[in-house]
Design a protein around this nucleic acid. Structure first.
Lengths: 210, 210
DNA sequence: GCTACATGTTACCGATCGGTAACGCCGTAA
DNA sequence: TTACGGCGTTACCGATCGGTAACATGTAGC
């Protein structure tokens, strides 16, 4: 997380300097998305204007609107990038412990806990967006809903495959505690109840094993 | 603009059952606060301008600024009103089951679950505000932190008094799941994992009873 | 050379943002 | 009666919002 956009700010005003690093011709669309990720996540979606994003991406508003039809669409794309990242985590974890759903589940729990413990973390970008964008028809909302649903389905599948008793209950418990941890660090900081997410999840799993 | 504010006129505050509501002598400050509660909560803090609040309160911006030094201060006051409400719930619950901490805890859990299940609920106003106002020095932040801290302390105290094993763990578990339920309904709606908050909490309590 | 296209630049639009000044009305207290 | 304070009204401020038009560049492919 916190994919710094330092890469974009490195080659600032390289007028004549052919030295330094390779050209790094990152296309404007990617730079804009990277800047949007940084700014939307750290400052909030409604607190950041498109002008600020364009500037952070070292381009301008006009180019931004050539790649994204509106700010709302940019927000949706910003969330899609987070969603696909999280989806990639699942694939990565499935590869590390093939055929061992319980190990996969615990690995995922530790991975999530590590993300939450990151001092730069401000929780789940998707859930935060849901708080900031209550409007029903917003293009970001289907991205959020889909992500949460598949996310929860993954956890449930592992709980089932691991042979836990009442897998639906366990999956929802882990899921709720993770959601709670990610939102609570924004109120109480990183020293609050979120620290106990791993212990609580493993306790829940243990008490439903056979 | 779109939805007129009916909250200020649905007569919840006024104890007087004297017919309809001809007098309506609710002072402007209260009307403004009521309008702010409605609009900030349903639409988001940054999405609502002071003009809209004044209009919904059937007054004007000038009067609003006579009672609140700034929008940020109005936001802080808005959160204080939620915090004191929640605090009142604790007092009410302590009175219903004096000397029975376990019953108090379970009553509180059911009460919170009922709030979460309300179709108009958009979760915890304090937690939502923390998501929307990441700025460090915002006057609302101390309100949020204090509320969360005392809230959690209440749960922990009951877990201790109830003689549960590892009361810190149980308290944090219940707290995290509640936080998770309240934020998750904003992403998945009211049919998601939040439905299992009661079952999960009671399960956690049961597995730590002696 | 040339064309074609992606990007950068400047200026602009109407709307809204948070916040303030000035004045007029009116009910109450002295 | 007079004085005063709370409230409503209008107009205004500079800044920023999301979004667009017109034009000037650079550069890649032919």
């Amino acid at each position: 997380m916190t994919a710094r956009i330092a890469a974009a700010s490195d080659g600032a005003q390289d007028t004549g300097m052919s030295g330094k690093s390779p050209p790094e011709k990152i296309p404007p669309r990617e730079r804009i998305l990277a800047a949007a990720r940084e700014l939307f996540y750290t400052q909030g979606i409604r607190a950041v204007g498109v002008e600020a994003i364009a500037e952070a991406a070292q381009t301008n508003k006009m180019t931004l609107y050539r790649h994204f039809s509106s700010k709302d669409e940019l927000v949706a794309e910003y969330l899609r990038s987070f969603a696909s990242e999280e989806e990639a985590v699942w694939g990565c974890i499935a590869a590390t412990h093939p055929g061992d759903p319980l190990a996969q589940l615990k690995t995922w729990i530790h991975r999530m806990a590590k993300d939450v413990a990151d001092p730069d973390s401000r929780g789940c970008a998707l859930a935060n967006a849901a708080v900031q964008l209550p409007e029903a028809g917003h293009p970001a909302r289907c991205v959020i809903e889909n992500n949460k649903r598949t996310h929860r389905a993954h956890v449930l599948a592992l709980c089932r495959e691991a042979g836990l008793r009442d897998p639906d209950l366990v999956a929802d418990g882990i899921f709720l505690m993770l959601e709670g941890a990610r939102v609570n660090i924004q109120s109480e900081g990183h020293g609050g109840p979120a620290c106990r997410f791993v212990a609580l999840s493993e306790d829940l799993i243990a008490s439903h094993s056979r």
